[in-house]
């Protein structure tokens, strides 16, 4: 039972270092930033012609980008932010979303999510969205999404919805991850619910279907040609666009 035999000090060092890295990121960028010109992206890629050409294309269709912190939650946070914003402005969307949210708590619990913790996230999400639609302003929305505790609660709930949809439509989604995970529940436990797991195509498709709030993804990478645009789900006509650069999502505005 010597100190050397106890591997904890090493493990703790690794964890402490990872903590420090996330704090550094947190101190550098707000969870959701104020919009800025798309041109600003060019300065990040001065040496990279593939990217520069694509960003040039991007500036023709989009004027502003709203950055979202790269903490593994960026897709979910960006999606929740655009959803809140759109619900405030679009009464038909708002009705549809609230009608859906009326059913989601019972639905998630029926799928096997623990009821009392799920209820906490559900109630917070619904109440916050209601407050925003009733009396929210741009400033209060920014405040909500930049308050760590609150913002992350909202992120957890959209992760739960994603998880629910993936498990409900397991027949459709499982073939994409078969062999890697024994079932959809395992995929969700490992790739959707942990708070710093990034979203991939499956998660995005599931969430947009769950809330019937589609989006356009604009891919920018180092390959030749203009940005690739992808509408999710297929055949929908989204009002919101997210910029995807490998490993990260931000919000785009026309």
């Amino acid at each position: 039972m010597t100190a050397e035999a106890d591997p904890m000090s090493h493990d703790d060092n690794v964890i402490a270092q990872m903590d420090q890295i996330s704090k550094d990121i947190a101190n550098k960028s707000p969870l959701v930033s104020e919009p800025e010109p798309v041109e600003n992206l060019k300065s990040e890629y001065t040496q990279n012609h593939g990217f520069l050409a694509k960003i040039e294309h991007l500036t023709k269709s989009y004027s502003k980008i709203r950055r979202v912190r790269g903490d593994g939650n960026c897709f979910y946070r960006a999606y929740a932010y655009t959803l809140f914003d759109a619900c405030k402005r679009d009464a038909a969307l708002r009705d549809r979303v609230f009608k859906k949210l009326d059913t989601t708590l019972a639905w998630l619990v029926q799928l096997g999510m623990p009821s009392f913790t799920t209820e906490d996230f559900h109630d917070t999400f619904v109440e916050t969205l209601k407050n925003h639609c009733d009396s929210g302003t741009y400033d209060s929305l920014m405040e909500t999404f930049n308050n760590d505790g609150m913002s992350n609660y909202l992120v957890v709930y959209v992760r739960l919805l994603t998880s629910g949809q993936l498990q409900q439509d397991s027949d459709e989604y499982l073939p994409f991850v078969e062999g890697l995970y024994k079932d959809m529940k395992e995929f969700c436990d490992k790739e959707v619910m942990p708070v710093d797991r990034e979203a991939d195509h499956l998660q995005i498709k599931a969430l947009t279907e769950c809330l019937s709030f589609p989006l356009k993804l604009v891919y920018v990478d180092r390959s030749e040609g203009g940005p690739t645009e992808l509408v999710i789900p297929d055949g929908s006509s989204p009002d919101v666009s997210l910029l995807y650069r490998p490993g990260h999502y931000d919000i785009l505005y026309d």
Binding site: M113, P114, F116, T117, T118, F121, N152, V156, L160, D189, K190, M193, P194, V195
Partner: peptide, 12 residues
């Protein structure tokens, strides 16, 4: 095994 996520709890 089951990992931590915010829907887990002290009871779990």
């Amino acid at each position: 095994s089951e990992r931590w996520s915010p829907v887990q709890s002290v009871e779990k």
